[in-house]
Design a protein around this nucleic acid. Structure first.
Lengths: 128, 128
DNA sequence: ATTTGTGCAAATCGTTTGCATCTGA
DNA sequence: TCAGATGCAAACGATTTGCACAAAT
């Protein structure tokens, strides 16, 4: 899989790929991935985590999710879909496919082409 | 205007408000506002810029725009609208009202309510 | 052997905070 | 007068970078 993406299958990359792609679609930040790796006794430095996440993204294995907040999230679901974002606890959730329809897409200004349309449905918690 | 928003009309706030609201709708970051203030010989510290932007936002005079990148943008247009985001140069542009239609809005998960739907149409530059 | 990846620590960027000083009502 | 605002510099969190060392082809 890594080889196919043009990446050398090193210990760290294989370990991180295992964590990322083991359990279906996930949204993960560099920090939380680092934490998970530590728990599973996979020693990886934060710098390598960042490198790997970006390389995976370039290789099309991951997708960067731009929601709010200062953190960057990576999504293992690279298909077309949109996101809920829980404002109270900075959580990203996939919107089930087909539930979200983007209506009319606007004409891009001259000289520009649309590269992607991202919809973020912001949520706030209501009475528990 | 400031008084109406419950904010003391201090020199700095008045100067910043003048810059922000003088020329129609704008998208501005703390840095660029600071730069503009400097050019217009309005000495304001960055800390005050941040304070002011957040106070204006709370007062409903500005709206925070969550696009990509690590910077936070503030929008003087507080009405319902969406944004283009030029990936090449981190520029935010309003999508003319009525050109963007959000289709079906998904059901929020139980326990949550939708606070806002944000659409970002990402643009890339094509041959000049 | 050569190229590429890794780890560490220091550096950077945007933003926030603590605190002493000033200012508007 | 005196709560509230400002400025500075130091603190901060997330991310990046430089460089010596290690591992993959």
């Amino acid at each position: 899989m890594l080889r196919q993406a043009g990446l050398r299958p090193t210990r760290q990359r294989m370990a991180l790929a295992a964590i990322l792609f083991a359990h279906g679609n996930r949204h993960i930040s560099a920090e939380s991935l680092h934490a998970e790796a530590s728990i599973q006794h996979v020693p990886v430095s934060l710098a390598t985590i960042y490198n790997t996440l970006h390389q995976f993204t370039e290789a099309g294995l991951l997708r960067e999710v731009a929601v709010d907040g200062s953190k960057t999230y990576f999504d293992t679901n690279t298909g077309e879909h949109h996101h809920f974002f829980v404002e109270d606890d900075n959580e990203v959730i996939d919107i089930p496919d087909g539930q979200m329809g983007v209506g009319r897409v606007p004409e891009p200004p001259p000289g520009y082409a649309i590269s992607r349309v991202d919809v973020v449905v912001r949520l706030r918690r209501i009475r528990g």
